[in-house]
């Protein structure tokens, strides 16, 4: 069965200047350094990696909150990388975002009602207030928040409830693609599963496609269909969930997976502990960026960058071992 590609990210790059002074030596952080992946309609693509590896930046590049330096972001075949803010408005409807920090992502001085009605006000200026309210109420109910909360302000809610409100806001415009930037990492574990299940339910009901960004592998395993592993601004492995979690190929993926705590202490397992820190993105190592910490590094790794290549059906790895 041929799947319909919804989003195709092609060799996207983004550098941030470190100093803006005229006289200082120009230094850049290569936040995203040639990332490519595709997301099919209706699936969940998980993007994992350590803090600072560029996964959130990738998310923001996809929905244009940050401008792409190089590369293409194709949404349904239209390149969004170089369009103006005005043209973007058209895509702000089918593409929505859920943010990491539910305490900061809702305007503190607006009522829930106004926060949720705002997307409709922006995109359907002629819609009547009662019509907007009924849409808001329906979605809020689906997200597990009762109607009588509409008149309240964000600070009157718990983190989990706020994230539900954030999810409701992202659904108001009936989007196709939702970029979820660490939607559960600010929440308690018990609330995390509720939110993840809610996202799954909503995905079925509204045929949503998720770009799910997280540093938590167990969360990604729970929700994703396909997974991309990022290290220092590049993807090192892209594969189906089964492949990643059963047969990880890249040494970094293996190390990440071995760091997931196991509930049973009797299970013997090989733990790969990476040595050293993640190198600075302003001065990344030459060759394969992972070679400084890779237990299997070879000579070629120091010289040549490994490109993503197909090693199995629906599994791509950027490593010289394959």
């Amino acid at each position: 069965m041929k799947k319909e590609v919804l989003l195709e990210v092609k060799d996207v790059k983004k550098v941030f200047p470190l100093s803006t002074s005229w006289f200082a030596e120009k230094k850049y952080v290569r936040a995203v350094d040639g990332v490519s992946f595709t997301i099919n309609k209706g699936e969940t693509f998980g993007l994992v990696g350590e803090s600072g590896c560029g996964k959130s930046t990738t998310g923001r590049l996809v929905n244009g909150l940050i401008k792409v330096d190089e590369g293409e972001v194709n949404y349904k075949g239209n390149d969004l990388a170089n369009i103006s803010e005005k043209e973007w408005k058209k895509y702000r409807k089918p593409m929505q975002m859920i943010f990491q920090d539910p305490y900061a992502s809702l305007s503190p001085r607006m009522k829930i009602k106004d926060i949720l009605m705002e997307p409709l006000t922006i995109h359907f200026p002629k819609m009547s207030s009662s019509e907007k309210q009924s849409i808001v109420k329906e979605l809020l109910g689906k997200c597990g928040i009762s109607e009588y909360h509409l008149e309240k302000y964000p600070h009157e809610f718990s983190g989990g409830q706020r994230q539900r409100i954030g999810i409701a806001r992202s659904l108001i415009l009936k989007p196709e693609l939702i970029i979820a930037d660490e939607p559960v990492s600010a929440l308690d574990v018990s609330i995390q599963s509720q939110i993840l299940n809610l996202m799954k339910d909503l995905q079925e009901e509204y045929e949503l496609t998720y770009l799910f960004i997280s540093h938590d592998l167990s969360v990604v395993e729970h929700i994703s269909d396909r997974v991309g592993v990022m290290y220092l601004g590049s993807l090192v492995e892209v594969a189906s969930k089964q492949a990643i979690f059963k047969e990880p190929k890249h040494p970094y993926t293996k190390a990440l997976l071995s760091s997931i705590p196991q509930p049973d202490p009797k299970v013997k397992r090989e733990q790969i502990v990476l040595q050293g820190d993640i190198p600075s993105a302003s001065n990344p190592p030459a060759g394969c960026k992972f070679h400084t910490r890779c237990p299997l590094a070879m000579d070629i790794c120091k010289k040549e960058v490994a490109q993503l290549q197909q090693v199995a059906e629906d599994q791509q790895v950027a490593c010289h071992l394959y």
């Binding site: 702000r92 929505q96 992502s105 705002e118 922006i122 954030g166």
Partner: peptide, 9 residues
């Protein structure tokens, strides 16, 4: 929340 408002257009 300002970024969030921008992301909804």
């Amino acid at each position: 929340f300002v970024e969030a408002t921008r992301s909804i257009g």
